[in-house]
Every structure is written in structure tokens, then in C-alpha cells.
Nucleic acid binder design. Structure first.
Length: 259
DNA sequence: ATAATATGGTGAT
DNA sequence: TCACCCTATTATC
């Protein structure tokens, strides 16, 4: 399931499978027939990850994919197996098949559309060219909570619901603290931690926010400190669960005092 | 079999 | 804040 690291990992994995080759593009499920037809037979010229968005470049055209909550990639060597589940898009190169199930966004963009998409998301913690100053300008002027702000993809891109709780716990900051009351130094720690955690997430293809080795692994291979946990690994105290704009959030009452 | 849940996002109210 | 979109998996009858 996708936070920013999933998308960058997919780009890294799929480049050698697809880029430079003419692809057969189809929609086994049938809900992307027209888009697939526009791309079918074109050569894939690159794959770019921007936050949680993936752009498969085909010269002037781009296939824009956003997985949302449910989407997933399935990659395999050819010969391809039967599509599994609801495969919206299947891309086949000479060597591989990439299936995309359940994406939230799946559309063909022209050059302007792709540029507009990139420009509406904030600096991506996983991109070397990201400018954290842009995020700081938004955060330091906002009355919204830091918990909302760091997961707002137009403020900064890549962090999802798990990384949000984990990063703020690691930095001992309560999610409800208003952005405008956050010291610059605290923002710098959040940004740096996000960069290092999501980078590790790309490398391990899982969300890992604990230092060192821990035994317990969830179904998806995550190793986390407080997300959906009862007790704080640092102080042993209780983790409180609450909601931020309809999404689950967690914090340690002792380590992250309320503002 | 049916419901509930999930690491996301948009657009209307 | 809510309705809604999209799918797979697990939990509950």
C-alpha cells in the first residue's frame, strides 16, 4: 500500500523493465480502453515519480497513475500470466508485464497537463531537487496543525498516514500543534527525518521507522513505533488514537505533550 | 454472504 | 465535514 516510498520504488523497479521499449498497452478490465489505445505501441521514454504520483513518459504523452488507497502494481517477467483481479492497465515490454490494479487516477496527459500536475504538488522529500523552503513558507504561515500540513501533498509530498504519526513521534511533536507555532528547527528535523525514513522505505520496500532490528513485522512488512500500537516503545506509556481530518492518528501522551 | 477496513484524494455542502 | 471513487482482504454473521 502506497505512501511516497512505494511510488519511487516502483519507478526504480520498472525503469529497466519498460523504458526504451515500445509497449503493448491494454486495459484487461476494460475501463481504460481509450487511454490504452492512445499509448499502445509507443515507446516508453522514462518513468518519473513525484510524491505519490507516477508518470510513465511516452514522448509528448504521459500516463499518470495515482494509486490512492487501493491501487497496486504487479510486475512479472513474460510470458505474462492471466490478469489477476481488476487490471486497469497492462503494459508489456519485450521482457516484462506491469499490471496496475485499482488506481485512483489513471489518465493520459499531454506535456502541459503533466507539468501542471507536477507544479501543484509540494516539494517531494524523495527528490534531490526538492526545496524544503517552499514547505516551510506554507507551514510557518498556517494555522492548520502540523499533522495536517505534513500530509498535505501541496505543502510537501510523499508522507502518508503512517509516516505522519511515526515522524512526529520520533521528533516528539504533537500532531495538533499549529504550523505557525512550530520552530524552524523542529521543521528542519521533520524534513530531515522524512527524507531519511522514506529513503529507507524505498530501499527496503516497506515502512521502517524503528532504529535497529525489531522482531515484529506486520503483514506488509512494516516495522513501526506507534502506528496502531498501544504502548510507547520509548516510555512505556499509552498511545492515544484520534483522528485528523478523518484519518487515524497516534501520539504518545508523555513524549508528545499536547500544545 | 455480507460488512468493515485500509498506508489517498477530490469536489460539493 | 461529508459523499464518493476505486479494490483486496479480513472479520463477522
Amino acid at each position: 500500500m502506497p505512501e511516497g516510498h512505494t511510488i519511487h520504488r516502483a519507478a526504480r523497479d520498472q525503469r529497466p523493465m519498460l523504458v526504451g521499449q515500445a509497449l503493448d498497452v491494454s486495459s484487461p478490465q476494460g475501463r481504460f480502453m481509450a487511454g490504452a489505445a492512445r499509448l499502445d505501441g509507443r515507446r516508453c521514454t522514462g518513468i518519473d515519480a513525484h510524491g505519490k504520483h507516477l508518470l510513465y513518459r511516452f514522448g509528448e504523452l504521459s500516463l499518470h497513475i495515482h494509486l490512492g488507497l487501493f491501487g497496486r502494481f504487479r510486475c512479472a517477467r513474460r510470458p505474462a500470466a492471466e490478469p489477476k483481479g481488476e487490471v486497469r492497465v497492462r503494459m508489456m515490454s519485450g521482457t516484462h508485464t506491469v499490471d496496475i490494479n485499482g488506481p485512483n487516477s489513471c489518465e493520459v496527459l499531454d506535456t502541459g497537463g503533466a507539468a501542471a500536475l507536477v507544479s501543484r504538488i509540494g516539494p517531494d522529500v524523495l527528490r534531490a531537487d526538492a526545496d524544503p523552503e517552499r514547505a516551510w513558507q506554507r507551514i510557518s504561515r498556517s494555522r492548520a496543525s502540523i499533522g495536517q500540513l505534513i500530509m498535505d501533498q501541496s505543502v510537501m509530498a510523499g508522507i502518508g498516514n503512517i509516516y505522519r504519526s511515526e515522524i512526529l513521534w520520533r521528533q516528539r511533536i504533537h500532531p495538533d500543534r499549529p504550523g505557525s507555532l512550530l520552530p524552524r528547527e523542529a521543521f528542519d528535523r521533520i524534513w530531515a527525518d522524512a527524507v531519511s525514513l522514506l529513503t529507507l522505505g524505498v530501499k527496503s520496500n516497506a515502512i521502517i521507522t524503528v532504529d535497529g532490528m525489531k522482531k515484529s513485522k506486520s503483514r506488509y512488512g512494516e516495522r513501526v513505533n506507534i502506528f496502531a500500537k498501544d504502548a510507547c516503545p520509548a516510555c512505556g506509556g499509552p498511545i492515544t488514537a484520534f483522528e485528523i481530518a478523518g484519518r487515524r492518528a497516534f501520539a504518545c501522551t508523555a513524549c508528545q505533550p499536547k500544545p
